[in-house]
Design a protein around this nucleic acid. Structure first.
Lengths: 227, 227
DNA sequence: CGAATACTTGATGAGACTCAAGCGCCGTGG
DNA sequence: CCACGGCGCTTGAGTCTCATCAAGTATTCG
């Protein structure tokens, strides 16, 4: 039962690294386990690094960021989560990252204890949880590659392509996050992000309809950056 | 046979992130699954990105690096593996990283198919595999933090502390890897690595007994870098 | 309309990269 | 035994990218 639903949800979604489509999965389980539907305003904290990992969450609408903070106040954003993505899932008992609402968002909470019961009861689900962890891992490794090796233009290009792939349109990207968020995701400063985007617009690679609406005019040029 | 060796190697080591101590657990399973003991000379490839993930491996002796290659020939090293560590474990059917011997090393191969049978048969094992994946994830996220935010000195400092924590001595670090490997791990150039180490020696933070033998003279100074 | 916030743009400088020698260690061979 | 390369590492000089500091513009909201 829960399994077949899980498969259906899976097929209906494209894979974008951090998504856990399969979780859409056990509706029976959701009835049993789904906590309240929560709402967070933009920039509200959902949980902090170090908090007890009592629940994990599925994003219904809006955008969420997961991040770590450094002692000097700076921030490294680990990932942006889009609707359908699941986050806050931990191997241990505490959260290793903070999660914050980028925009207003709606979230369903799942109790952790229930999940463990599911894992114990159904090894196919267990394998899917494992597979989720491995997807996250792969995405994080790609992120490392970008952070370690890319120029500002390469980082911004990869970021825009990632957002385009995960969004609805292949050429129009609606950025829910601020320049500061982008900077903290890519290991750059806000000024460099801004300058690089302006530069790309001057070159005709992209168009900035508004600061948050980007049109990819020359997708090829962006892809060639990281070639 | 290989089993007792495996367990011995396992028990003799502390946890350092990527280790999979729990594997020591099912000795019966190891008897059934342990493949041949393999030997690789320094700089030999163990598997390449894209290869079928038929097996995963446990490192018995020596040091291994896992990495990705970029089109321009550059390399990002994902992790260094020390004896006791397990690697080559994948969610999908192919390897997402290459693995290469840093020094001469001895490795035990485990068949993947058998592993899946174990997961199906024993949910405790399944949970441990999941937990392993989450450890890797955590380590990789920390690596991202370093790559995205650190100065050269911060990166080198963190690297030395990591190696010291994982090694036998708290103050003497034996580097199995070349400067190039370190550079590719930290997202720096070989020259910057060299210069930074020299600088640290001039300041009395470390001593370079030989190019590969580092003594941490002022651990505190290194820790304060990333404060 | 004014104030706050987010973003862009410019000038400058620091840090890391690039290019280019130079050193030191080893193994080889004369 | 020492000369010779080869290789890995270090060091130096110059350049370039990106961070920093500092305005200035746009957009939103009261």
């Amino acid at each position: 039962m829960s399994v077949s639903l899980a498969s259906a949800a899976l097929n209906g979604h494209k894979h974008h690294g951090i998504a856990m489509p399969w979780l859409g999965a056990e509706q029976t389980a959701e009835v049993a386990l789904g906590g309240p539907v929560l709402h967070f305003a933009a920039d509200r904290r959902i949980y902090a690094e170090g908090d007890d990992a009592r629940s994990y969450y599925k994003l219904v609408s809006g955008v969420v960021r997961t991040c770590k903070f450094l002692s000097d106040g700076r921030r490294q954003i680990d990932a942006f989560l889009l609707p359908g993505d699941v986050f806050g899932f931990e191997g241990g008992t505490i959260h290793r990252l903070s999660a914050e609402a980028v925009s207003d968002c709606t979230i369903i909470a799942y109790r952790r204890r229930g999940t463990e019961a599911i894992i114990a009861a159904d090894d196919r689900i267990a394998r899917q949880f494992f597979s989720y962890a491995m997807s996250c891992l792969e995405q994080t490794r790609d992120h490392c590659l970008l952070l370690g090796r890319g120029s500002a233009a390469q980082k911004i290009g990869a970021f825009l392509l990632e957002m385009a792939d995960r969004g609805d349109s292949a050429t129009k990207v609606e950025l829910a996050m601020s320049r500061q968020d982008i900077a903290d995701y890519l290991g750059l400063t806000i000024e460099t992000v801004s300058r690089t985007l302006s530069q790309m617009e001057r070159e005709g690679t992209i168009a900035l309809q508004t600061t948050r609406k980007v049109v990819l005019r020359n997708r090829r040029a962006l892809e060639d950056l990281n070639a």
